[in-house]
Structure formats: C-alpha cells, structure tokens
C-alpha cells in the first residue's frame, strides 16, 4: 500500500503533466479547424479548457490544457497527412513522362520537409523552454510553443495545395 501510494504520488509529479481530456472541447475545436479562419482560433481551445477545468490556471492545468489542444492539432495533421502525400504523388506521376522524371520529387521532398519540421519544432521548443531555466513556466512554454508550431504546420501544408 505504501509503495503504491509512493508510486502514485511520484507519477503525479509536475514533470508528468498529462493532457486534459479533449472530449468536452472536441466539437468546438473541429468546427474551427475545419472552418473559414482556423488561424484565428489557435489557442482558443486551451483557453476555454483553462477556464472550465478545476485548477485550469495552475501550472499543471495550463500545461495539460495546452497539451490537449496540441494533441487535437496533431490529430488533424495526421488525418490530413495522407491527402498531402497523395497530392504530392499525383504531381510526381503527372510529371514523370517528361524530363525523364527528374522533377518527380514532390513526395520525397514532402517527407524530408516534414522530418526537418519535426526536428525544428522540437529544437525550437526546447530552446523556448530552456529560457525559463528550471522554473515550472518552462512546461507551459514548451507546450504552447509546440501547440503553435503544430497548428501553423497544419495550415501551411493546406495552403500549399490550395494554391494549385
């Protein structure tokens, strides 16, 4: 019993902030992410969560709400990713009969760009968090940085093919 309690307490330590349950916020988030001006609502879901959840404005609460919205954007990114791959592959196929196929590189470069973006997001948010030293603000900062990068990535990837 004592060991279980000790373990549970250890798991509840601040470093192990868990994302809030997205269920109550999903419908409003989806409506905005799929709507006309998704850029305007980046961060709104986290904000609503902080107001609604008990302890939403504690460090743990803010971090959990921000991680929750980051997770929702990540879901959108993953859901739309196959479409981006398909568009790049279709472009490559259409181009293949010409110039010996030397310009059929969209799919390969999309993958390279996405890998480079993940590395950039993580390095950038580590730097943003590090500027807060060991203070608990660094968790909120890291989560907020990751949320903004992920949301912007969703919109950037959409914009590239909307152009064509």
């Amino acid at each position: 019993m004592t060991r279980v309690l000790a373990l549970l307490l250890a798991l509840a330590a601040p470093a192990a902030a868990q994302p809030a349950d997205p269920a109550p916020y999903r419908a409003a988030f989806d409506a905005c992410a799929a709507g006309e001006a998704p850029r305007d609502c980046i961060g709104d879901t986290a904000q609503v969560c902080m107001e609604a959840e008990e302890g939403g404005y504690t460090t743990l609460g803010m971090t959990g709400c921000t991680m929750m919205e980051q997770g929702l954007w990540d879901e959108v990114l993953n859901a739309e990713w196959p479409g981006h791959r398909a568009a790049a592959q279709a472009q490559d196929e259409a181009e293949r009969p010409y110039f010996d196929g030397q310009f059929s590189k969209a799919d390969e470069r999309l993958l390279a760009a996405q890998r480079a973006w993940i590395a950039f997001r993580d390095a950038d948010c580590s730097a943003a968090g590090a500027s807060w030293g060991s203070g608990s603000m660094r968790h909120i900062e890291y989560a907020g940085c990751s949320l903004h990068h992920t949301a912007e990535r969703v919109l950037d990837l959409r914009a590239l093919w909307a152009r064509n």
Binding site: Q91, A113, W117
Partner: peptide
Amino acid sequence: VAWRDAQCAYTRSTFGG
C-alpha cells in the same frame, strides 16, 4: 535553417518541371 531549405525545396518540387 535545415527546415527552411527542406520546406522550400518541397515548395519548388510542387511545380514539377
């Protein structure tokens, strides 16, 4: 820097030839 270069190379490739 690595992301900028990879992203812009990708942007270019969406125009094919």
